[in-house]
Design a protein around this nucleic acid. Structure first.
Lengths: 369, 369
DNA sequence: TTGTAGGCGTTATCAA
DNA sequence: TTGATAACGCCTACAA
């Protein structure tokens, strides 16, 4: 045994210096041996590794390594809601799954950051967290005020579902086209009087920007129908309950619309419940459409007419944008940080993934008057 | 302006040293001023803050601060599955929500770590992540091999739904009591031949330990019924599809059981679908029970008979255990680290939260033979 | 092939 | 009230 007995203090985690001392080499040599990154003689390497094992060395201290390297292997997922609500949406689960998968390929992990307090507190919390990049889901709007701070820190930022900010890559889908295809489908069935259940638009809601785009698209598509009439009702949250409440308000009108266009499948499920509670047949008395194409596991052979968006792919795509930006950005300061930064800036992507209309059993011709 | 012009290099994030230089004070004074942690004259503080603003100082670098303080403000949530599957379970969403809420009160955040690769890779990834504590959900079993590494690092660990490891606090619920109450309810309705759909037990599944406990409890409760017969069928995953598949296998038997006890509401929904697909009435032809008490948003006035467990509270409780352990553990090495550690060890909590039987519309007397 | 030096950005301790 | 000093643990030039 060459190891001396001046090991780490009781209870303290062994450090590379401890290992080096025990192995009788310098810290840098120990580093090379442990990380396998550099020329070390077989003999010394074995001695170092033995010492490491003997001391229960747990590998490089993540924080210290991060400080030195300028990268911490963490990508923040910033959601504009409480996690309990955000993950109540299967779409979000799919998105985060795709994100995690792709981010995981380079060994990074996801930091989950809900932002639902006041803007200042949210920004402060974000500022205190170590991260290489941030993916803003439903809170990339200027209103959230999160973007400036993150960019000033030099954090790589990608937004999801917009609204797009200058110089920030964004992943979204064809909200307008999807909405239009739904309305056109209803129009071809003969519907004219259509109710729209919108997602919350406040900065607290999931996916701001989305409701605005989809509502505008629905409006113009409905108005393009001869005698088209639009009625809009906002859900306070993207939950089944809120969808049911909003749909109920429309259905309880003296002359209810013949079709409901919900801006998410979750809201659409609320519509189905509202109809069912009022003994209205779907699609006999009222047609219902959703948006997302998540699996609602409805019983009795019901299939929601909806627009299917690729949630998992959205996550993977966001991840790829993050990884690309991290690649082209120097970890710490390097000779030319301005150049790659500009490159990233110039190529600030606006990716719109395609969606597909899925016609199910919840839409049909309107009831005769 | 006292600020000199030797500011940070282009593109580099401003550092406290930059601020101090610009304000003409020492770094330590700047630190005190910026953090408001110490006696600083009004005048200097203003000068420092002005300099900080002028340089666009973004606050202390999180990693550097963490290294110095020995705490990084991150709690890892380690789940034994892909995130897409884990969060498909509303129970998990509720749990993480509660966890995040409570953890957020001290300004910490959640790191999401899926472990579904080989044990070695999972452990290695975990070892490279900075965290103050880890909450193991469905992967605290010895089989996962994650515990030793985490403990050796000095990370605070809390497991959820066991199985309990020595010296590690655990939060769970009364699985046995809940299961028993379901079986007793079925027994009192006259059921004797009962099928059990179990959650996956492998380390890859969500909540190992749970299936074993619930299955054992179901077995003994059913056997306590006169002429009781148990048939067990395992779901490969905690998904509706898997529940449907497993239930289908039981229902397609020559003499199918008169009741299905699913170990989660998600699996129970699969049972309902399996029944519906076979034109079996629930509860007329077959009774179905779940476990969890999450909102499945079933249409048509169906309410699942199930055991309601407090998912959000489970998260909050796990968080409180984490915070308590962090409180009693020294951030870095201190005079007496052995003492508090021992205290935490001694009080390694086993918290079992209560559950409640909820009788819905999916259980009734068995069909006459 | 190995060791030395320096620094990543911050903060705790102490002395002035 | 302020400043100098020394870590926190690691890694990478560079020199030997």
């Amino acid at each position: 045994m060459t190891a001396d007995r001046s090991g780490p203090a009781r209870g303290r985690r062994a450090t590379l210096a401890d290992v080096a001392r025990a192995a009788g080499v310098s810290a840098s040599t120990a580093s090379l041996a442990v990380n396998g990154s550099g020329p070390v003689s077989c003999d010394t390497r074995d001695r170092v590794l033995a010492a490491a094992r003997g001391l229960g060395y747990q590998g490089p201290h993540p924080t210290a390594r991060s400080l030195r390297r300028g990268r911490c292997g963490v990508v923040a997922v910033v959601v504009g809601d409480r996690l309990g609500y955000a993950f109540r949406d299967p779409m979000m689960a799919a998105f985060v799954d795709g994100l995690a998968e792709e981010i995981g390929t380079v060994g990074s992990s996801l930091l989950l950051v809900p932002t639902h307090e006041d803007a200042e507190a949210d920004a402060a919390r974000l500022a205190g967290l170590a991260m290489d990049a941030a993916v803003l889901v439903g809170c990339g709007s200027p209103g959230s005020g999160l973007l400036p701070g993150l960019l000033a820190r030099g954090t790589v930022v990608v937004t999801v579902d917009g609204p797009p900010a200058p110089g920030v890559p964004d992943v979204g889908i064809d909200d307008e086209g999807g909405t239009r295809s739904l309305v056109d489908h209803l129009g071809s069935l003969g519907h004219r009087d259509i109710g729209v259940i919108t997602l919350p638009a406040s900065r607290d809601g999931t996916r701001p920007g989305v409701p605005r785009r989809r509502t505008a698209a629905a409006r113009s598509a409905i108005e393009a129908l001869p005698g088209g009439r639009t009625r809009v009702r906002a859900a306070g949250r993207n939950t089944v309950g809120e969808g049911e409440r909003a749909a109920g308000a429309l259905l309880d009108a003296a002359d209810p619309p013949s079709a409901l266009v919900a801006q998410s499948d979750v809201l659409a499920l609320g519509c189905l419940r509202a109809a069912s509670a009022r003994r209205l047949a779907v699609p006999g008395d009222v047609s219902v459409t959703g948006f997302d194409g998540v699996d609602l596991h409805l019983l009795s052979g019901t299939l929601l007419t909806t627009v299917v968006q690729p949630g998992q792919l959205k996550g993977r795509t966001a991840a790829r944008l993050v990884l690309a930006a991290l690649d082209s950005t120097a970890p710490a300061e390097t000779p030319g940080p301005a150049e790659p930064l500009a490159a990233a800036d110039a190529s600030a992507a606006r990716i719109r993934l395609p969606v597909a209309l899925r016609i199910g059993t919840t839409t049909g011709p309107p009831a005769p008057p």
